[in-house]
């Protein structure tokens, strides 16, 4: 079930990247996609009744600790890349005055010419 949902959210994010023309929506969609991957990673190998990987549990009962460690990394990555994207977004908005990808592209092409 969780795997299904993570696939759905991933494609939902991708869909938003394709159809939504606002930059901020693209960033939101990117966050959604990242979260979907994290959800998948955690739920992928999970079996019912497994305990957190802390030494109170027996080794056989523990859930796989590796995805969790990796996904903490992924969350930190997510926040820093989101912050950078947002910082760029505010620069972009200040310089171009719009956050529509199509208008941005047009202005940029005129700059080139």
């Amino acid at each position: 079930m969780a795997e299904l949902v993570s696939f759905i959210i991933f494609f939902l994010g991708l869909y938003a990247l394709v159809v939504k023309r606002s930059v901020i929506k693209s960033i939101i969609a990117l966050v959604l996609m990242e979260t979907a991957v994290i959800l998948y990673f955690v739920s992928g190998g999970f079996e019912e009744g497994k305990l957190p990987p802390i030494s109170d549990a027996l080794p056989e009962q523990m859930v796989d600790p590796l995805p969790q460690a990796l996904m903490i990394t992924a969350i930190v990555i997510g926040i820093s890349s989101t912050a950078v994207a947002l910082a760029m977004y505010s620069q972009l908005h200040r310089k171009y005055g719009t956050d529509d990808w199509k208008k941005l592209m047009k202005i940029r092409l005129e700059e080139d010419a």
Binding site: M33, E34, V37, Y40, F41, S81, V84, R108, E111
Partner: peptide
Amino acid sequence: QSVYDGIFYLLTNLVAMTFFLFGIALLYR
């Protein structure tokens, strides 16, 4: 100009890396 180029680069490549991470997740699972 470089602001547009920069955000274009950043977002496309971040999307690509999300794909990459999903691939890793499937493999690891």
